[in-house]
Design a binder for these strands. Structure first.
Lengths: 217, 217
DNA sequence: GTCATCGGTGAAGAAAACTTCCCGGGAATC
DNA sequence: GATTCCCGGGAAGTTTTCTTCACCGATGAC
């Protein structure tokens, strides 16, 4: 079952929430401050319930640090003093949801479950995308094709083959197809091959990785 | 043969250099300003000879833009007013070499050839590294292993297997071996698995790519 | 000692990825 | 109308990668 970290300086509320969650079958960790929360944060934590107003490091700062350290962590903000500004600020900093105290037990559980579901769904989709993308990039010829299209902007099938000195165009076609299926390359109205927005971003990452592997260059 | 872009506002010098390079068998493009150079810059250009002092956009600014647009492009700065400060600044901005005017024709050709050779060499090494790295990342299990080691910092073989719920440890060993061979994972003195510096950088790129693929997360 | 667990190696088989070959429709050229 | 080049599909064959299985020495517990 999912692991939830409850961060609140109000001992009573913290224990109450923890109890409710434990009864609902979740594994619960407790922290009375942002500092403590960051210490407790392990890879196994799936979701954080974070009080906005706390002595010491406030909830907002904690939120930023949590997200910085583990971008895919789900964080739900809790506060007794809800304002639009705070809510917007929290969401901008990457909070996934926002609840105002006091709340009903049912609402809490619902919100928690909803966010865990969303996380699972996104994780799943992301894994698929990553798979496809990395599989594409794992092949040198496909990387070359991607880069070449990136340089040329838009290019015809045969020109691409000539540019890359691939004698057998059906071979290139095979790889091009995979690139299209991965959503990195597309054809425009005149059948010219171009990069998709995603393709451009991926090339950016590739260049970064190249730079990473060989800092001298 | 290699393609070289000569950028200098002094028409005579520009033509002279171009002629020398052409005679030496290079393909030469000419630009009288930084702006023009950026326009002419195509994927096929291998090396740029760039005057430091030019009206309009100076050589330093041009250098930054060239490198920004095409990080692996070789750029050799030329200047009549050589100072240590300028040289250092240029190298910090990514210039690959630095020549003071006037220079001998032989020196110019030597420097150009040396830099082209270096570029070729690095390109070759980089391609090898990229291959190995991408091949590693193309497999979901290897990505999981990498991430898990990253989270844990240092971890024992069997603990890793349990953490990832891999029942057959020989299977994991297979992938772990590949990660070690790619230089992303290493073993410390107590046989605990840890990330190498390169491994950490690669994880950073992976996270970026994940973010790229799924901006919502 | 005896036994279980840890941390591997190596080889055979299964699965996936890649290459090659053959084909066909459409556009352009003669 | 015939021919040639462009762009691509599909299937068989080949290579690479991945999984599984059998085994082994070391270490530590009992």
């Amino acid at each position: 079952m999912a692991k939830i970290l409850v961060v609140d300086d109000d001992r009573e509320l913290r224990e109450n929430i923890a109890e409710v969650l434990t009864e609902a079958g979740f594994e619960v960790l407790k922290a009375e401050s942002g500092e403590k929360a960051l210490q407790l944060l392990g890879p196994a934590v799936d979701l954080v319930l974070l009080d906005l107003v706390m002595p010491g490091m406030g909830g907002m700062a904690t939120l930023s640090l949590l997200k910085q350290h583990q971008p895919r962590l789900r964080v739900i903000m809790l506060t007794a003093f809800a304002t639009v500004e705070n809510a917007v600020e929290a969401m901008r900093r990457g909070a996934d949801d926002y609840m105002t105290k006091p709340f009903k037990v049912g609402d809490l559980l619902m919100t928690v479950r909803k966010n865990l579901e969303e996380a699972k769904f996104q994780e799943c989709h992301l894994a698929l995308d990553m798979d496809q993308t990395f599989n594409c990039l794992s092949n040198p010829m496909r990387r070359e094709i991607l880069r070449c299209i990136g340089r040329e902007g838009r290019i015809r099938f045969m020109d691409l083959a000539r540019r890359l000195q691939i004698e057998d165009h059906t071979k290139m076609n095979f790889h091009l197809k995979l690139l299209r299926e991965a959503g990195l390359v597309a054809q425009d109205e005149r059948k010219l091959y171009t990069l998709t927005a995603e393709g451009r971003r991926v090339i950016g990452c590739m260049e970064l990785l190249a730079h990473t592997l060989n800092p001298k260059v």
